[in-house]
Amino acid sequence: MEFEIWWLLGIPLFFTLGWIAARVDIRQLLSESRSLPRGYFKGLNFLLNDQPDKAIDAFIDIVRLDPEAVDLHFALGNLFRRRGETERAIRVHQNLLARPDLPQEQKTQAMFELGQDYLKAGLLDRAEETFNQLAATGQYEAQARRALLEIYQREKEWARAIDAANALQACGAGGRQKEIAQFYCEIAQDELVHTHPDAALVMLDKALSADRNNVRATILTGDVHQANGDTEKAVLTWRRVEQQSVPHVALVAQRLMDGYRKLERPNEGLNLLKNYLAEAPSIDLLEVVFKATLELDTVQAANQLVSNELRRTPTLLGLDKLLDARLMEAPPELRPELSMVKSLVHGYAQKLARYQCSHCGFKARQFYWHCPGCSRWETYPPRRTEELNVMN
């Protein structure tokens, strides 16, 4: 009975305490909000209405009246950077760093923001120096190392990019093995350009150690063997692409066909590519098989090949190939009309003959391992956009 009385008395007591706490919080909030300048709310309102220019003007007015408003300096600097006014952003963050009374935590934040300003302005040397200092402090380490990785990629300093990616992995920012493999491929490609095939092979072995499914490393390894005159080894290497990714076989189809010709076994090469085509339809692969069929077989066989592929994967690009084949065996009186249709289809087909980045949507005529639009690696499927739309 005594417990029930206390429990009943406790209900209004808890409500009373809750009401008092809420009143104190509300009064404190109102007190703090009254102490803020009116321009602060104007600036926030402009930001919410997506009017950054007016927000900047409002914040500038506040900073003039209250130079100690550190948070507003940060907000102002970030707004300048977003608007592309990097010089003004740099000045704001440099002024913050120059303040002797600024707490260490905010100094570190100002240094990070300054590094971002330098990076946006393209002042890569200054950005690199700033982010290296930050990484050494252990604060903002992952963000700093990520920025350093971006800088080294922009400057094409692939060896330093590898070190930065390894350091980024070590600080727990996720795996970077695919990127590291691509950096080794970039170094190998440079070695190939300067006719250093042995050095290129060393780099490609490292690329495959980092990512054994790296198709580019396999293709380049075959290229090195071909450059060394070992066509048999080159062909065997290019054939390994099928084990890594069947759709990427289209990227080595012409290499394989040329290799088998050099080995004087073109029919073997053609049969291999036909098997690949049956397994993974591809316009690029069809192009190589079509030309090889014309060379080694008959026009009728090439015609039938394209007709079968068009039924399986109906695309304008495939129709363009079919019209090529039909023109070759068409009677003279029908060729002008067929040629006109072919010209129209070809024009539209070429607009669809693009590779497209799966991340940013950037389209290109050629295949890229590194997207020119978003700078991401391995975001291009090895099929043209029209094929992907049909398959989806």
Rank of each mutant, 00 (worst) to 15 (best):
L168G: 02
V24Y: 08
F41I: 13
R311S: 11
L102S: 13
A21I: 13
A330L: 10
E128C: 11
G10S: 09
E141D: 10
T86Y: 09
Y380G: 07
C371D: 02
L263N: 02
E85P: 00
Q182W: 01
R261K: 12
G347F: 11
Q133E: 14
E129S: 10
L204R: 03
R160F: 06
Y184F: 14
L294N: 05
L96A: 01
R160A: 06
H359V: 03
I20K: 06
V92S: 01
T221S: 04
K351C: 07
A234W: 02
T195N: 11
P103S: 00
K54N: 11
E333C: 13
N389Q: 10
L114H: 00
D223K: 02
A136N: 15
A58L: 06
D163T: 14
H370V: 06
Y40T: 07
N214T: 07
L76V: 15
P197I: 02
R64N: 08
R23Q: 12
L168I: 14
Q366R: 07
A325P: 07
G174C: 14
A147N: 06
E179H: 06
S35K: 12
E386P: 04
Y380N: 02
V224C: 07
L47F: 13
E264K: 15
G222E: 00
Q366Y: 07
A55F: 02
C185M: 10
P247Q: 12
A89F: 00
W369L: 08
E329V: 14
Q143G: 04
I283L: 03
S31W: 14
E264I: 11
P382G: 01
L29P: 13
N166Y: 12
W6Q: 08
N95D: 12
K321A: 03
M340V: 12
L272S: 02
Y40A: 12
Q109S: 15
E232Y: 15
V288P: 00
Q182V: 00
D25C: 15
R38F: 15
L134I: 15
Y380L: 03
Y355C: 03
L317S: 00
A173P: 10
L97C: 01
E85A: 09
R335I: 08
G18F: 05
D190R: 08
P332D: 12
S31R: 14
K107M: 01
Q244S: 05
G318E: 02
